[in-house]
Design a protein around this nucleic acid. Structure first.
Lengths: 331, 331
DNA sequence: GTGAAAGCGCTAACAG
DNA sequence: CTGTTAGCGCTTTCAC
C-alpha cells in the first residue's frame, strides 16, 4: 500500500495525495476528507525512505553514547528527546562501547543522510576529523568536547568543580588528599585532574603521583583506587572521585578496612546520581545539570540544522557541590 | 558527490560503480581498482537512503526501551549488538519513557521500513496489536512478552524464580514475608507476584494484601514499600523485591529504623546488577542471563528477518539465586 | 485546486 | 565484463 495505490482508490493523482499528507492548504476540503478517509481505511503510512530520498532529510537525529551502563546519561537523553520532539525530531541512540570502529560506523549515518544531525556524548576520533565533520554536518558534543576541535559543545567547568572541592577540603584542614579518576574520557578527566592539582598548588601543597590513580569507572575500580591511595604515607584524609560509582567502590573498600567514611576520611563523588542518597554513608557529589545539558545540546544542534554555517558555540553550564554524610569530617 | 558523479569521473556507467561498491565479482580488476581510487579520492559514501529505497531493507534493527535509567538493560543491548553485528546489522535504540505515543512513533519506523526489525523490551500496546505487528514485521519481545500475544519472545521464568526464593525463606523458618513489586511491567510483575502467592499457599501460609506493595522501581519506592510492610503485625522477617533498586531502598530504610538487614530481616533483590556487591550489607539477588537474553532475542529476530512466516518461538532462559549478606538470617 | 512529469541515489534485470 | 533501462515511493515545479 503506497501513495500510488491510495491515488488510484481515490481517483486522484499522487500529487494530491502527497499534498494532503503534507497539509498543503491548497486542496479542496471535500477532496482532503475523501483522501483522509481512504488513508485511514487502508492504514496507509507514507514511506519515509522515499520521502527522505526526495527531501534529503530524515527528521531524525543520532545520539552517540560511549556506554549504556551509566545512569548519568538517562536524564541527558531525556533533555535532548523532549527538546527535539518540540521541533519534530525523533532521536535514535547508538552505543559505541568505546570502540572506534563502532563510532565510525554510526557517524556514517550522518554522511549517508540517514539522520540529519548528531549529538555525541563521547568521541575517540581526533580533533581534526571532528572539526571537519562538524563543518559539513550538524554535530554537537555534549559533556566531552574533543580538545582542539572546532565544534559546538555543552559542558560544565570540570576543572573548577574539582578545584572548589579540593579547596574546601584544604580549608577544613585536610593536608593529604587523593583522587580516583578514570582513563578514557580525556577531556573531563584532564579538567578534573587539573583542578585537583591546581587547588593543591594554590594552597602550597605538592602534587604526588601516587595519590592520583586512574582506571575505569566500575565500582571495583573505586575499591582498587582507594586501596592504592591508602597505602600512601601519610594516610590521606580525603578522596575526590571522578564518578559516584568510584566513590561508592572506594567507600565500600574503606568500610571493609575499618574506616568510618565521613569521619576518618572524606569521599566526594561526581554526577550526583540517584544512588548517592541510598547508601550509607550517603555520598557527597558534584552535580551536573543533566537535563539542561541535553536540552542545550539540542538547541545548539538545531542552530546547525537550520544553518550549517552558523558559528560554533561553547556553552558552559553551572555545577553544584552537594555535601552529604561522606564528607562530614574536617581534619 | 553521488554515484553518477563517480561514474562520470571514471568514464563508466553507474551500474559498474554500483557493482564495485557491492563487491560484485564480475568486474575487471583494473576497472575495480580505478573506481576504488576515485571513490577514495572524493571520499564518496554511497547514499543509504537511495539504497534502502531500492532494496527495501536498511540493515538496521530497532531496540525499544521503556527507560534508559536502568542498568539492567545495558548488557542485554550488548548481547543484541554483538550478535547483530555478526550478521551485518547495526542497532538503534529508542526510549519510550513508558509513553504510548512514543512507542507508536518508534514502531512506525518498522512500517516505514526504516528499520528491518525490532526487539522490544517493553510494550504498552495491546496483545492484538502486537500479534498483528509481529505477523507483518520481524518483531521480538525480550523480558516482557505481552500476555496473550502471538509473538516470538525470550524471558526467564519469573514466577518460578520468586517461588523458589519464598520457598527457601519458608524452609528457613520465616513465617511472615513481604513483597515490594512495581506497577507497570505487567508480565514479569504478575509472574513474580504469582510466584510469591503460590509459594505462600503451597506452604500453608495465607497471602495478605498489606504485605504486597506495588509502585515504581526507584530507590525511594523501596523505602516507602518497606515502611508500609513493616507496619504489619506480626512484623515480616523477609522481603522479596522486584528489583535491586527496590531492595536497596528497602535496606536503606530498614537500617535507618535500626534493623540489621541480614540478621533481623532478610531482603532479596532482583536482576543482580553490579551495585549489589558494593552496598552494606551486600544484596542477595535473582540473576537473569542478560547477555544471553539479548543474544537469543536477536537470533529469534534473525529467523523472522530471513522468513517472516517462520513460527513464533517462546524461549525461557535459566535464572540464578545469589545469596549475599542481606539474606543471612533464618528465623 | 488538480494533474503530469521529473528526479532524489541507488540496484538489478537484461542485453550485448 | 559493461551499459542501458526501469523503478523503489515520494515531493515539487510547472502547467492548466
Amino acid at each position: 500500500m503506497n501513495i500510488k495505490d491510495i491515488a488510484k482508490k481515490c481517483n486522484l493523482s499522487v500529487a494530491t495525495i502527497s499534498r494532503v499528507i503534507n497539509n498543503d492548504p491548497k486542496v479542496a476540503d471535500s477532496t482532503r476528507k475523501k483522501v483522509l478517509s481512504v488513508i485511514d481505511k487502508y492504514k496507509f503510512v507514507p514511506n519515509i525512505t522515499g520521502r527522505s530520498l526526495r527531501t534529503q532529510k530524515s527528521n531524525k537525529i543520532l545520539v552517540l553514547l560511549p556506554t549504556m551502563s551509566n545512569q548519568f546519561y538517562s536524564e541527558i537523553i531525556q533533555g535532548i528527546e523532549e527538546t527535539a520532539e518540540e521541533k519534530g525530531y525523533a532521536i535514535l541512540v547508538a552505543v559505541t562501547n568505546l570502540q572506534e570502529h563502532q563510532e565510525i560506523k554510526y557517524l556514517h549515518m550522518l554522511r549517508m543522510k540517514h539522520v540529519d544531525g548528531c549529538i555525541s556524548l563521547f568521541n575517540t576520533i581526533d580533533a581534526e576529523s571532528i572539526s571537519s565533520l562538524a563543518k559539513t554536518y550538524p554535530f554537537v558534543q555534549c559533556c566531552e568536547p574533543t580538545m582542539g576541535a572546532d565544534v559546538s559543545s555543552v559542558e560544565i567547568n570540570n576543572r573548577q568543580a574539582v578545584y572548589d572541592v579540593v579547596n574546601q577540603f584544604i580549608q577544613k584542614g585536610h593536608k593529604t588528599i587523593g583522587m580516583i579518576s578514570g582513563d578514557y574520557y580525556k577531556t573531563s578527566e584532564l579538567g578534573r585532574e587539573t583542578g585537583y592539582k591546581e587547588a593543591l598548588r594554590d594552597n602550597g601543597l605538592v602534587f604526588e603521583k601516587s595519590l592520583l590513580v586512574k582506571n575505569f569507572y566500575r565500582y571495583e575500580d573505586g575499591a582498587i583506587g582507594a586501596k592504592k591511595i591508602m597505602a600512601h604515607n601519610p594516610k590521606p584524609t580525603a578522596i575526590v572521585c571522578a564518578s559516584d560509582s568510584l566513590a561508592l567502590g572506594a567507600t565500600s573498600y574503606l568500610k571493609s578496612e575499618g574506616y568510618t567514611v565521613g569521619k576518618d576520611i572524606c569521599v566526594m563523588g561526581f554526577d550526583n546520581t540517584a544512588i548517592t542518597t541510598y547508601t550509607s554513608p550517603t555520598i557527597s557529589s558534584i552535580g551536573q545539570p543533566r537535563y539542561d545539558l541535553g536540552k542545550e545540546s539540542f538547541k545548539l544542534l538545531y542552530e546547525k540544522l537550520e544553518n550549517i554555517n552558523s558559528t560554533n558555540k561553547k556553552i558552559i553550564l553551572p555545577y553544584e557541590i552537594i555535601h552529604r554524610e561522606s564528607t562530614g569530617c574536617s581534619k
